[in-house]
Simulated scan of single mutants.
Amino acid sequence: MSRIAPAGAPKVSEKTGIQRESPPLFKVLMHNDDYTTMEFVVEVLESVFHKSSPEANRIMINIHVRGIGYCGTYPFEIAETKVVKVHGLARAEGFPLKCTLEEA
């Protein structure tokens, strides 16, 4: 059933002129160290960053060979949460794994 708006009522489809800005994005980077196992890095990439097994392995190799690997780009709060989660998982296993944020 359609509704008829009273005369002079604003149309719902009119634009208000307000434009929303996208939140700033941040890259999450994982750094190589001499203690964290490659298997643990792959597990973290799969569980925290939802990477497929082949992609997690590719990123892990980049971390191992280049010293740093790109995990994803997210709004600040999400990126920060992922970094905190990685650090928590690593510390619980006794690893010094390090993640950082970089403005995209």
Rank of each mutant, 00 (worst) to 15 (best):
A5I: 09
E14C: 06
T100G: 07
A90F: 03
Y35A: 02
I59V: 11
P10Q: 13
E21T: 15
C99G: 08
S47T: 14
V44A: 14
A56K: 01
Y35K: 05
G8I: 00
V83W: 00
G17S: 01
L89H: 05
I63P: 06
N57Q: 14
T16A: 04
F40Y: 10
Q19G: 12
G94V: 09
A9W: 05
P23V: 12
T16F: 04
E14G: 06
L97T: 09
D33F: 08
H87Q: 06
P54V: 01
E21K: 15
R20Q: 15
R58P: 03
D33V: 04
L101N: 03
M1I: 13
E39G: 08
K15N: 08
L45M: 11
S22Y: 13
E77T: 09
P6W: 02
I78F: 06
R91I: 12
A56R: 03
L45S: 03
P75Y: 07
T36W: 01
L29Y: 11
H87S: 00
H31P: 07
E80T: 00
R91W: 09
V44N: 11
N32D: 12
D34N: 09
C71P: 12
S53E: 11
N62T: 14
I4V: 12
E21L: 15
E43G: 00
K27C: 13
G69I: 13
E39Q: 08
R66F: 13
A56M: 01
P23L: 13
